[in-house]
Amino acid sequence: MSVPASVASVFRGRVLATAGTCWLLVVGIAAVGAPLLAPFDPLEFDPFVRLSEPGWPHLLGTDHFGRDSLSRAIYGARMAILIGSGSVLIALVAGGLIGMLSAYFVRLGHFLMRVVDVLMAFPALLLALVLMTLLDRSVLNTIIVIGIVYATTTARILFGMTLKLKRDVFVDAAICSGAGHASILFRHILPNLVSPMLVQASFIFAFAQLQAAALDFLGLGLPPEVPSWGNMLSEERVYVTRAPWLLIFPGALIILSVFSMNLVGDALRDNIDPRFKDDIAGV
């Protein structure tokens, strides 16, 4: 099946998943074009229009510093994409390598998977909190911490999948034909794992948004001045009764994006190799 055809088959008959993809595209465009699209500077204070209602010229109103909510929301899309893809990258590369190597080299795996077990003895949010305690509040550190948290589950999942693949005949055949370890791992095993990893990636992307928002809310995530949806909620929560729209819009943006990503992950999961379907929990 050609790539466009297989992509099309994922979305055929899935109205919600298609709508979710469209929304994610909107977020992506907002992230890339933020400087052009945002009507105001997201960091600029305007003491004369504090907590103004949605209207002209501040379409989504202003926060208690008088910053334009729409502009902050558009720049927030940037943070969402950055944190999502950053954590996915770390989780998949670190977790993927640990999982694959552990399944392939049995002795190493014995040690590495015990380490993963120990890390998984810490509940996800607690692990993130502990790591954030050791680091300063910054965008990069938030990404690293969330990435590490999901690297453990990813390692566990890919460990199982690689074991299944290793038992398969084609790897034996590759060994017989004299292929080296690297070649077997990356040219024979990895290609089979690409689509399940894509599914895992979409779920991590979704979870990462919620984790980042939670960290922002607890005051342990991104620095408070950074325009992220989580910070918008966290900063304005005391004004929830006076200016409820300040919480509705960023909240809706997070929910829509996480929901869309989950829908896409769900749709992708239905189309992967049935052997791996049960390995990825997702939502």
């Binding site: 979704a206 919620l210 928002a213 939670a214 809310f217 989580g230 909620l233 929560r237 929830v240 919480l247 909240g251 997070i254 929910i255 996480v258 929901f259 989950n262 829908l263 769900d266 939502v283």
Partner: peptide
């Protein structure tokens, strides 16, 4: 799935 996508603090507020 929608409920699993809502940040808990937002729901709480």
């Amino acid at each position: 799935m929608l409920f699993a996508s809502v940040p808990t603090f937002w729901l709480g507020l």
